[in-house]
């Protein structure tokens, strides 16, 4: 069991049966929480497997809050703050042209504000358009 608070079965979901039910239905959780995390699901493919190994796992050095979970057909990733996928880096690593829109072929979901910035794909906890601008490299 991971100690990372972003882990797949962390928090309330670490409990089970009656203990889970008591916490889940308790008064403390009757209002919406505020979370600074973001979530990405990447559909498994040749490129995604390589990106997980070569790009996402090494990201943990700078952001230890990143949790990764194999969910059968996809990888589930959760992190505090922001996740940036640099497709120029992926392109170099894969040895072929790989644009941000090629990456999006296999990005199965996000929770947070997701956007493209040039050849980067970013999911952030920032509120784009309210707290910050939707930037463009052009």
């Amino acid at each position: 069991m991971t100690k990372n608070t972003n882990g797949y079965n962390s928090g309330t979901n670490a409990k089970s049966g009656q203990a889970f039910m008591d916490e889940f239905l308790g008064d403390a959780t009757s209002k919406i929480p505020t979370s600074d995390a973001v979530v990405v699901a990447l559909m498994k493919s040749e490129e995604i497997d390589a990106i997980i190994q070569e790009i996402v796992i090494p990201m943990r050095e700078e952001n230890p809050s990143i949790a990764i979970e194999d969910r059968g057909g996809y990888y589930w990733i959760k992190a505090t703050g922001k996740l940036t996928f640099d497709c120029d880096e992926a392109s170099e690593m894969l040895g072929k042209k790989y644009t941000v829109y090629d990456l999006l072929v296999n990005v199965s979901t996000t929770v947070g504000r997701a956007f493209t910035l040039g050849n980067k794909f970013i999911v952030t906890n920032e509120l784009l358009g309210l707290e910050s601008k939707v930037e463009s490299v052009y």
Partner: peptide, 9 residues
Amino acid sequence: MSTGKFVRG
């Protein structure tokens, strides 16, 4: 490369 932990029917 899958971790193989997930049980597929």
